[in-house]
Amino acid sequence: MPATAPIVETEEFGKFLTDLFGLKVQSTEAATDTGTIRAATEYVDGDGQLRGLIACDLPCAARLGAALTQIPMGAVDDSLDAGALSDNLAENLAEVLNIAVNLFPECHSQRLVATTTTQGEEASTLFAEKTEGAAVCSFDIDIQRYGKGVITIARLES
């Protein structure tokens, strides 16, 4: 398992999501478990070099997607029952993870962009493969009215 490193401070991370959703988001540090990951987005620099990934377990992915446009909780429950995100939750999650590029400290000094979001068990494998030796941190998040999930951030050295 990669070493834990403070890529982003816990409080800053909660504030980031609170600002994005307009809903209170509590965040606490969590242990990283790549096995539960069901969605992962890759971030590349201007040379196309992979610089980081952000990944979520399914509850987190569904809740982030729903909270963005305040979709009713029933849609989250449906996705959790189905074991996969509905199209609108997946679309919203991609937008959340696109904006989350700003969690990487280097985005202020150089251009970083989100590329594809991989879903399902493939996301777990992808994350494990691509973050070997990277700095990784995880957070338990609790979104007002939506509930809890785990999000993991990995930062690769250039």
């Binding site: 696109n98 904006i99 590029v101 700003n102 985005c107 202020h108 000094s109 150089q110 251009r111 970083l112 989100a114």
Partner: peptide, 8 residues
């Protein structure tokens, strides 16, 4: 935008 670099 999500772009935040000084260059952008």
């Amino acid at each position: 935008t999500s772009e935040s670099s000084a260059e952008t």
